[in-house]
Design a binder for these strands. Structure first.
Lengths: 160, 160
DNA sequence: GAATTTACCGAATTATATGCGGTGCAAATT
DNA sequence: AATTTGCACCGCATATAATTCGGTAAATTC
C-alpha cells in the first residue's frame, strides 16, 4: 500500500497550483507570465504536477440554480452497524445515486455525511424516501437544508 | 435584482455540461466528436453556456494529502443571534479564513456548516481556537472530522 | 573542482481554437 | 401552401496556443 506518496514542490509550483485551482482555463503563456518563467518550463511543471497526482483533474463549475437544481442539503446518516461489509454495501448503493455528490465517513454525530443536490423539495423528499432510506444499512438520517451558500471556494490553502 | 435568470439549454448542451464537469481539459475537437457536432457550433455552444452563467468557472482539483492537507472537517456553528448584522459580521470574518473552503447557512441542527481543511489535527485545533471561536458572533461549534471520503463528485445531476 | 543532473530559455513545429461565408432546415408569416 | 426569416450548422482559412527540441546555465553530487 503506497498511499501518502510524498511529492516535492517548490514555491513556483505552489503558485501554479494556486492559479490553476482558481482558474483552470488560463493559457500556458499567461500562466508563465504570472509565475515569471517562459512557457516551456512552465508547461513542464504543470505536466509533472499532473503526473505526480498533485493535480488530479479539471472541472467546470456550474450554477446549480440555472440548471434547475434548487435544493442542496447535507444529510447525517447513521448505519445499523459499523463493520466493513456493511459500510461497503452502503457505499456501493450511494455510488449509484447521482444526486449524492459527496459522501464522507466521519467522527462525531453521525457515521456519514452526504451532500445531496436536487431539483426541489419534492424531488428531494422522493429521493430520500425511495432511494437513500431504502438502503438497508441505513439506520438514521438527519437532513440539513442549505438556505444559502456564502462561500464555496475551490482553492485549497496550500501549507508553506 | 435579476437573480434566477431562466436559461434555456437543450439535450446537446446538457451533454456538453456533463462532459465539461467531468473533464474541463477536453479539447473542443474531441468534445465536438463526443456530442456529434463539428467544432465551430460546439465552441459556440460552450461560449454561450459561459456567457449565460450556466458555466461559472473552471478549476483544477488537487489531492489534499499530497499537498500536506491531512485533515478535513465539517463544523456546525451556532451564532449568538440570527439578525442580519450578526450574520454579515460572521461572514466577513469567515471569508478571510482560507482554510474555510465552504460556508452554508442551514436549517436544522446548527445555523451554519463549514467545511475546513488543514494540515493536521494540531493546526486544525489552533485554527479553531485562535480564529473561528474568536469570532464574537460564534456561540457553539461542533466538529465532525472526516475519516475518509468515499465520493467527491464534481458532476451535478442535471435534471431532464 | 570536475562531472552530472536539473531547470531553464528561445525558436521551430504541431495542434488547437477561432472567425467567416455559405447552406439547409424549421418555424413563423402571409 | 408558399415565402420569408432566423437559427444552427458545416467546412475552410486564419490566428493563437501548446508542444517539442537543442542548447546553456545553474545547482548538485562525487
Amino acid at each position: 500500500m503506497d498511499n501518502y506518496v510524498k511529492v516535492k514542490f517548490d514555491k513556483i509550483d505552489r503558485k501554479i497550483l494556486e492559479i490553476l485551482q482558481a482558474n483552470a482555463k488560463i493559457t500556458n503563456a499567461q500562466l508563465s507570465k504570472d509565475i515569471g518563467l517562459s512557457p516551456a518550463p512552465t508547461l513542464e511543471r504543470v505536466k509533472k504536477l499532473e503526473q505526480s497526482g498533485i493535480i488530479k483533474s479539471y472541472h467546470a463549475k456550474l450554477d446549480p440554480e440555472k440548471i434547475g437544481l434548487g435544493v442542496s442539503t447535507f444529510v447525517l446518516v447513521g448505519l445499523v452497524g459499523h463493520n466493513k461489509a456493511n459500510i461497503e454495501a452502503f457505499m456501493k448503493e450511494i455510488d449509484q445515486i447521482s444526486e449524492v455528490i459527496e459522501c464522507h465517513h466521519i467522527t462525531g454525530t453521525g457515521d456519514f455525511i452526504l451532500k445531496i443536490i436536487s431539483k426541489d423539495i419534492t424531488s428531494y423528499q422522493k429521493l430520500m424516501l425511495e432511494k437513500v432510506s431504502e438502503i438497508k444499512e441505513v439506520d438514521s438520517m438527519q437532513s440539513m437544508v442549505i438556505l444559502s451558500t456564502f462561500k464555496d471556494s475551490k482553492v485549497l490553502p496550500i501549507p508553506a
